[in-house]
Design a protein around this nucleic acid. Sequence first.
DNA 1: CATGAATGAGCATTCATTCAT
DNA 2: GATGAATGAATGCTCATTCAT
Lengths: 210, 210, 210, 210
Amino acid sequence: MVAAAQPAQGQGKRARTKAANRQAILEAARQVFARLGAEATTVRDIIRETDLAAGTFYNYFKSKEEVFEALADEGVRRFRPRLASIRENASSLQAYLLEAYSAYFDFLNEENEEAIRHGAPHAAMIGVRVDTPEMQAVFEEIRTDLEQVAKSTGLSLADSGYLTAAAIGIAREVGDHMLLRRPVDTRGATEFATQLFLHGAGALASKNNS
Amino acid sequence: MVAAAQPAQGQGKRARTKAANRQAILEAARQVFARLGAEATTVRDIIRETDLAAGTFYNYFKSKEEVFEALADEGVRRFRPRLASIRENASSLQAYLLEAYSAYFDFLNEENEEAIRHGAPHAAMIGVRVDTPEMQAVFEEIRTDLEQVAKSTGLSLADSGYLTAAAIGIAREVGDHMLLRRPVDTRGATEFATQLFLHGAGALASKNNS
Amino acid sequence: MVAAAQPAQGQGKRARTKAANRQAILEAARQVFARLGAEATTVRDIIRETDLAAGTFYNYFKSKEEVFEALADEGVRRFRPRLASIRENASSLQAYLLEAYSAYFDFLNEENEEAIRHGAPHAAMIGVRVDTPEMQAVFEEIRTDLEQVAKSTGLSLADSGYLTAAAIGIAREVGDHMLLRRPVDTRGATEFATQLFLHGAGALASKNNS
Amino acid sequence: MVAAAQPAQGQGKRARTKAANRQAILEAARQVFARLGAEATTVRDIIRETDLAAGTFYNYFKSKEEVFEALADEGVRRFRPRLASIRENASSLQAYLLEAYSAYFDFLNEENEEAIRHGAPHAAMIGVRVDTPEMQAVFEEIRTDLEQVAKSTGLSLADSGYLTAAAIGIAREVGDHMLLRRPVDTRGATEFATQLFLHGAGALASKNNS
DNA sequence: CATGAATGAGCATTCATTCAT
DNA sequence: GATGAATGAATGCTCATTCAT
């Protein structure tokens, strides 16, 4: 039993260290990407946030881009199950939208909170333009789903391409806007986005005017 | 007599050359920004697209950022009049949206066509992510207008911040999507965006289902 | 008569302009050298102080070094007569030293005052290390003279090389020091330098101790 | 057993290499400074004298100025003890001067010999204008000392500022001159400088005339 | 594997100099 | 001769990447 918990001790130690180093790099990269933007981040910036040596980086990743993709993969892996179950259980477009927007806004909020917690010294950037690799990947995932869901309903006939684009656009911009408010209200953003997408600004207005 | 007119020409030639060089740099920058993203672009990338020498860049601009701003200014200068008249003449939110979306999609299309016409050597990227400084500037202009228009109607009561964000998001994503289709149909995109924003996906769907 | 005063009118105008431009460049160079140091001065710095165009510089000088030398020549030309007469009229070493030190300290002071008058925006440098080309040239002139004078007296037997070096060293350092005091007292410096060189610190001390 | 001692060696080698590179850069800088003057020297000039790569320079120094200061520090560190003991043990001004001039001329000679030994490819400049950072630093050290010594004696009453300047000037110029002679005679220069400073040219002359 | 120093290509920028007008 | 824009070599410096230990 004990042995089973620590498979092949000596190797286990090494394996753990290896995994830990990889994780450390990813974690550092996540933070630095959020802080400086993926574009402006250098490999040096990443390893500096680590207790590892410069050369070690290349034992795990071939370049900054590979880290970027690894983060994206991680994000997707974390998010795909939720999306899959949403897609399967959605009884209506509205139901799907509510769940999907909610999932996205929650995810966005988590990423953002984490960025705020860990450093993020450039106060001006807090809450603005959280465009991590994970997020982008999740985004594409949703786009695909949404296109499928749209296609499987009468609504898609209108123009599933544009409809998906619009849904995505709403998520993106309303999501960014949401992060600027305190407290961050993912629920409110979700309802807004869903209502707007389904019934337009008119519906929202009349709701508030009455 | 003709000879007497010459001096002006000598000066004219110089002036023309200067203006031409400035334009060449701006044009090159516009393309490279579109291709690589403004962030990733280096001054060298820009002048390389030109038949000018490295140092010449600095006869016209102090830095990459100055080029960026010059492009943004140019875009705004070209676009602001249209926006102003739209804003003033809009009799309803629908009218404003139709005009504004139309103006934005036209502008986007123009930029895109120009990019295609002038080189754009990396064919793969044509029509994708046209995020030039001009566009960003025009964008902010619209956002401001829209917020004002929204504020001055009952609709704003709902949540002018989110509403504006949504309208922008729709424009952004539907616009990018529009450029991927052939022929590019700005009119269709305009109507789609306006309808969706005002009445939601439901309205569009029923229209097609009936 | 009138014609004689303006030899060949058209040419005269041109000649005057030519000379004036050359002078303007030299004057500008003198100032900038004093302000920034000859080493750090660029051709651009010089012509910027002028109303001439960049290219014009090269109609008069091949390089910054040539300006430097022209200034040195000018300094020597201005100074050589005084030195010559001093050398010829010196009835004793003491007489020569008094006159030569006086001439050097006066020259130094003039240069310095001019530098202060014209700009010299780096206040910290005022009065410090005035090491213009003219000065260096004058310096070498003196060195030669002094060596000759020393050689022609019994004193030189000691070691005319070292003696000259010492006289020069005293002039240099005491001169710089002199410029730091207000008011600048060339007479005092001259007497000090002469006394020290001839009779040593002992003589000076006893004079004050008594 | 021997193998067990190896780990230290691995580290030792690295450490040695690092120190060696730092020394190589300093050494190269010393030479190039002497050859071209500190002002005119570029970082590239320094590393070119080395078998290191351009970027390596910045592993050791942030800029040329930092090298300059490191050299100055080194010179002072090497020289300060000698000066301190001289100052403390000086029973008279003469004693102080003898020791101080001797120390300075020896130092100058060492620096010069080193420059000759290590390359100094521009033969024409050997022995001329040795104005390294170390020397400048040592110089200031002496100036301070001398001023104090002067101040603590009756001699200072004359004019300690000028006296110090004169002593320094003598050291500078006689020192440069000394290096031009073969063999280099620091002892002779020391005696000359001390005698001249204390008793003037008259004393030296009479000594030789008799 | 980890380390971290060395590498050298690449970038922004400056500046002496040339040359068409 | 005067002009001033164009030139491109040179400089300080950064950074991804390699490699001996």
